[in-house]
Amino acid sequence: MASTACFIIVSRNDIPIYEAEVGSAVKKEEAAHQHQFILHAALDIVQDLAWTTSAMFLKAVDRFNDLVVSVYVTAGHTRLMLLHDSRNEDGIKSFFQEVHELYIKILLNPLYLPGSRITSSHFDTKVRALARKYL
């Protein structure tokens, strides 16, 4: 498992709808905003890159020092972004695919308004379990 990893789901309106620190490292106080900064900045790259390929998994799109941002863009232009320091691309791809499935399940919930924050604790547990499994 990566020592630092921050997973975030950004809605098509560029609003983070789900955030999780999934790294095994001890969570540092200032890490939270740093991670947000990096991921937020990486959106600029994603914006360009997303239209150049038909693949959903964009691989590593951006880096900041030793942290890498991997992105998966769904058909609805929701972006699953992972900030990590490991280089396990296959694992990340599987992680994204499974989270995408979970996300679709969330979307299928008639009470969930697309683009709103995901508050389901079940989703959270599942994502963390996937992170443990793949990252």
Partner: peptide, 18 residues
């Protein structure tokens, strides 16, 4: 530089300013 790039990369701009 990010601001001047076409199209402007505002988020990068903000991040680097910070």
């Amino acid at each position: 530089c990010y601001l001047l790039s076409k199209p402007p990369m505002l988020r990068k701009y903000g991040f680097h300013l910070v």
